[in-house]
């Protein structure tokens, strides 16, 4: 590889850092309903100070028409035989991430990793190509449902019966 190319790649890496880091502390007002403040890699406060219900959250992550998180992640939910392996296991997730970090990941993973396969559960429908008319202008989950799931994930601390739920 030529010297020129090395410089190019080096520049590329530097420009990634320069371009992506200032991206984080931004406010999103994509659609009138969706506004939250991203700070670093977190969303600090739930919208309108909603309180999550972890029991509902546990159902939502299983529900194929809602979170369907089990499609891609393993969770301590023995009733479901099949857990996906596309994403990382979420066992003990709350030892790795804070509540605020989890909130951003469930809200819109693409804010952190623009090429992530994980759907943005509260991502602005305006950013989406060819949404089915059935879901026009809808997010996958409501703000309350996101909070329910976040409050469930926060309980995942230790194996094997990590969650008291």
């Amino acid at each position: 590889m030529s010297f020129f190319m090395l410089v190019k790649i080096n520049n590329f890496i530097i420009s990634c850092i320069v371009v992506f880091i200032p991206f984080f502390p931004i406010t999103i007002h994509a659609s009138p309903d969706i506004n939250y403040i991203i700070k670093d890699d977190s969303i600090l406060n739930s919208r309108n100070d909603l309180t999550g219900d972890p029991y509902k959250g546990r159902e939502l992550v299983r529900d194929r028409n809602k979170g369907n998180c089990l499609a891609c992640h393993q969770l301590p939910i023995p009733e479901d035989a099949f857990h996906g392996t596309i994403g990382p296991s979420l066992h003990k997730i709350s030892l790795r991430l804070t509540e605020a970090q989890i909130r951003l990941r469930v809200t819109d993973m693409k804010q952190i990793n623009p090429i992530s396969i994980m759907p943005g559960y509260f991502r602005s429908p305006e950013k989406i190509t060819r949404i089915s008319p059935l879901y026009e202008n809808c997010t996958i989950l409501s703000a309350q449902e996101v909070e329910d799931i976040v409050s469930y994930l926060v309980t995942l601390k230790s194996d094997p019966f990590e969650s008291p739920l």
Binding site: A71, I86, I117, P119, T129, I131, C138
Partner: peptide
């Protein structure tokens, strides 16, 4: 990328081939 799930074909069939979707 298409639809509310906002995924493209390559994500499932190039990147995560062999992985389990449920």
């Amino acid at each position: 990328r298409f639809g509310q799930m906002d995924m493209n074909c390559a994500q499932c069939h190039d990147i995560y081939t062999g992985k389990m979707l449920r």
